[in-house]
Design a protein around this nucleic acid. Structure first.
Lengths: 169, 169
DNA sequence: AATAATATGTGCGTAGCGCACATATTTGGT
DNA sequence: ACCAAATATGTGCGCTACGCACATATTATT
């Protein structure tokens, strides 16, 4: 039955995210979208509060407070953006280190589940997931949202389709 | 590279859980572990506060308050347990209906991502995920935790190994 | 019977978030 | 050049979901 496979993927995804979130909390001491924010701020220059808000799918005020927490923790700096309204978000040295640790923790968490498969099985699984993601109908923003925890290398080789006709800027 | 596949599975899992959680919130009007609690209470008779706590991996007080919310919402009843200390948690009619809707929402959310694959690909993916889960080293409690959002049919045909030597009670 | 273990409930605080509102800057129409 | 709309940020306030420490009731152990 088809729903049986959906159920399996749901269970696996839950197990994966439980482990990722636990590791992330251990690394940055915060939960919710805060770890994702650290990663997102790190991978794009010129990240602003408002772009971040859309990627994390939070309210505006929620995003401001999230950045407040990152600033309090010494992980992020608010600098003046080129557009006088914008705030340019930059990682501090400490923030960049935490981000790196966070990404490593995430990969390690997933890999620990994955390593019961043989190399051949792993490769087949990778191909299937790649195709599954590549065929999704995603907007530019969906893509950033799905990849908000991705390791940098991911988005240099990202299977998610770039929807043309919606220029980023 | 192996970490590339871990990254893909991480991204997919995030996308899957985003959709499941959004749907769950739409159905029950609550977030966090509350939807999972509704499912867990529904699939085992004799569910107690303490068993629930361990399955959801929450603190004791967090679990009590979670059940408070479910009772307030008219989804769950506290009945006297056979052991005079225990509270037996039971779904109300409304609770059972919400639970059913919740499970359907979850399957639908996952299926909407999955349906870009051909039947053959879907089947291969199902086999891989099944094996991946079946080979995990899970305790009895891990198993309940991973399956805390599972549709009933899952755990009648669950790939997760039952660790013998750790009796349930 | 006394002590420990088990199970639940409560006071209190915190993290993470949303809504409504206020403010500053830029853009666009006239 | 001017004024309205759009854009981007920050703030007051409240709520949900949760944890810690403590209190209480019941059962198990010795």
């Amino acid at each position: 039955m088809d729903t049986g496979i959906a159920n399996l993927l749901g269970a696996l995804s839950l197990a994966v995210m439980d482990r990722i979130e636990q590791g992330a909390r251990d690394v940055v001491g915060r939960g919710g979208e805060t770890p994702a924010a650290l990663i997102v701020i790190g991978y794009g220059r010129g990240m602003t509060n408002d772009k971040l808000r859309r990627i994390l799918d939070l309210s505006h005020s929620g995003t401001v407070r999230l950045v407040d927490r990152l600033v309090t923790d010494g992980l992020v700096e608010r600098r003046p953006g080129k557009d006088g309204r914008e705030v340019a978000l930059h990682l501090t040295t400490k923030g960049a280190a935490s981000r790196k640790e966070l990404l490593a923790s995430r990969i390690s968490a997933v890999a620990s589940l994955l390593d019961v498969l043989s190399p051949a099985e792993t490769k087949r699984l990778g191909t299937l997931i790649h195709d599954l993601l590549a065929r999704q109908d995603t907007s530019e923003m969906d893509r950033f949202t799905i990849c908000r925890m991705c390791d940098d290398q991911c988005c240099s080789n990202c299977p998610l389709p770039t929807s043309k006709g919606k220029g980023d800027r």
